[in-house]
């Protein structure tokens, strides 16, 4: 089962000593690298420690993670049925309202009615199991087999950013939906940048959102792309680029650790998928923050059918 590296093996052995409270991990990637294994690694670690976790993705649907996690020996489907995992789907409906609210044509209405899709969720604090399965009636293997419980689809956020902010509250409500335990839940968010740029939400609002989530979570992992155009800003940069760089660097300043995935500098190799760099974030520097420390390192990683291997340069990984 443990074919995935544990957070301790990534962040240093003393990471576990840190207080599990408001931790922030910033995971950056570039085009061509897949940070999904870091998600699986965090999920696996949470489940094996009996914790709760919310996975939010605005880039990929549940089956994507289900299939990928299965390859690495993690059964997300079963956890979805248990009480320790919530998946928030920010892809399927975010800009695709079947509601026909804007479509002039008569769209053959899918089983879900628009009214149940909107409105109901954001207001209710502890989310009762969503009654509507994500309405994918026809093809696709996905949601029909999915238990609707613990599977939340973000509603439409077409047009104004106000609608999108409402969807952020849905995510927050999902985190609060866990029954109170000693350990706070973890949250993993992917594709927040897409929400930000595609809806035009102000970057400060996104930051507030992350701050609010950190207050109620043990560890929060934010996955963002760090391609050069999105990081290096000049006077002529577009608002999209500046907002993205602003978000990324702001989070970098608050993070406990920054995990950067990039491609091998020397080109593509058969037995190396990319480079993982772990650096200490400012959040880890406070002396009073416990005995643990994130240890900086640069490792190669290789993702294959046999699992994910992380190894030092030159050690070959075999």
């Amino acid at each position: 089962m443990s074919r995935l590296p544990t957070p301790n093996s990534i962040l240093g052995p003393s990471y576990a000593l840190l207080p599990l409270e408001s931790q922030l991990l910033l995971v950056t990637s570039v085009l061509g690298t897949s940070p999904a294994w870091v998600i699986y690694s965090l999920l696996n670690d949470t489940f094996s420690n009996g914790g709760d976790v919310v996975l939010v993705s605005c880039l990929n649907e549940f089956t994507y993670f289900r299939d990928g996690a299965k390859r690495h020996g993690l059964d997300l489907q079963s956890h979805l049925k248990k009480d320790d995992f919530i998946f928030v789907d920010g892809l399927s409906k975010l800009f695709l309202s079947d509601a026909g609210s804007h479509g002039p044509q008569s769209i053959p209405s899918p089983p879900t009615t628009p009214s149940s899709l909107r409105g109901a969720i954001p207001t209710r604090a502890p989310i009762s199991p969503r009654q509507q399965a994500p309405s994918i009636p026809a093809p696709g293997k996905a949601p029909s087999s999915l238990d609707p419980i613990r599977y939340i689809t973000l509603g439409a956020a077409v047009g104004t950013s106000a609608a999108a902010i409402k969807q952020l509250d849905v995510i927050k409500a999902a985190v609060q939906a866990f029954p109170a335990k000693t350990a706070r839940p973890r949250v993993i968010i992917e594709g927040l940048d897409i929400i930000m740029s595609a809806t035009g939400i102000d970057v400060a609002r996104i930051e507030d959102f992350i701050y609010e989530l950190r207050e109620i979570t043990s560890t929060m992992a934010v996955l963002l792309p760090a391609d050069p155009p999105l990081v290096h800003t000049t006077a002529s940069s577009t608002p999209l680029e500046i907002s993205h760089a602003n978000l990324l660097v702001s989070l970098g300043h608050a993070a406990d650790a920054i995990l950067s995935l990039r491609l091998l500098d020397t080109g593509v190799a058969k037995d190396v998928s990319g480079v993982l760099r772990v650096t200490r974030g400012a959040g880890n520097l406070w002396r009073g923050a416990g005995a643990g420390a994130v240890e900086e390192k640069e490792l190669l990683y290789h993702e294959a059918d046999a699992g994910v291997k992380i190894f030092a340069r030159g050690s070959g990984g075999h």
Binding site: S29, D227, P228, S260, R262, T279, G281, A291, A293, E298
Partner: peptide, 20 residues
């Protein structure tokens, strides 16, 4: 490119102390 922080970030410099 792609690594927003370099190695040596926030690590200080000392031969005798631990990483923390």
């Amino acid at each position: 490119e792609g690594a927003i922080a370099s190695l040596g970030t926030n690590t200080g410099w000392c031969d005798t102390c631990g990483p923390k």
